[in-house]
Amino acid sequence: MKPAPFDYVRPQNLAEACAILSANEDARVIAGGQTLVPMLAMRLARPAVLVDVLRLPGLSGIRVEEGALVIGATTRQVEAERSPDVVRHLPLLAAALPWVGHPPTRNRGTVGGSLANADPSAEIPLVAVTLDAEIVTEDEGGMLAMSPDDFFIGPMLTAVPMGGLVTQVRFPIWQGGRIGVGFHEVSARRSDFAFVSAAAQVEVGADGACTRVALGIGGVGDRPVRLDVGSLIGMRIDETVLEEAVEAAAGGLDATSDLHASAEYRRRVARLLGARALADAYAEALAKEHG
């Protein structure tokens, strides 16, 4: 299981990387390689050139900026997992990261790599979709910021421009004090691809009613999706309300069927885990002090 031959280049800066990528349509970006290298090993991917962007200056790091938590594309998943800023400002990502692969792959895998590979069951894309993050790409033409809905096209398929690469992702920080998150996932083994994953973030007001809510589902269809549970806003959430809202939102969910899980299973469990994630998020938000 050896990859087909390829050339390897490690550009010194982003401009050089973009130049190489645009000059060679069989070039492919590699960062942590945790998704790409197995595909190379099985010869399912056969790029002519690998462009290693892992050590490009300016592409790694986590910072708070204009109401968003900005994570550079080459930031290792483990760095995000251990980042106090992520825990503080982006608790949903903090909750999701321990589910990404297993410890050795998180040590090398990058946040941007997970987005760029667009596995339908991957956790980081799910959080990006749930919170409507902004995914920033760059090519010779300059920077481009996309919503996840525009970015994720299908399984392993994104709108990264030809000759470009993901450079950062900007997760909006919810500013209110009473914010809670919930994350659930089911897979055959703990570190496997999720059959279904659900991510929720809820903000409650002083009266205990929902003021803001987001729910995303991964693993079910060909890409992660955000469900519209806006009907919960202004409500105090109980089990009945929750189930009704999720039932309505998840009604038209596209689901794939494979060896490990039927489409019916994915739909059924999406409703369950969606409701659980929301319930957890709501309970956590309620438990927080006012203001």
Partner: peptide, 27 residues
Amino acid sequence: CEHGVCGACTVLVDGAPMRSCLMFAVQ
């Protein structure tokens, strides 16, 4: 397995365990 699942190839890179089958020597 040479595709990053089994972990028999694990080495430490700057002290952190990683798959040496999912990394090229040139990296």
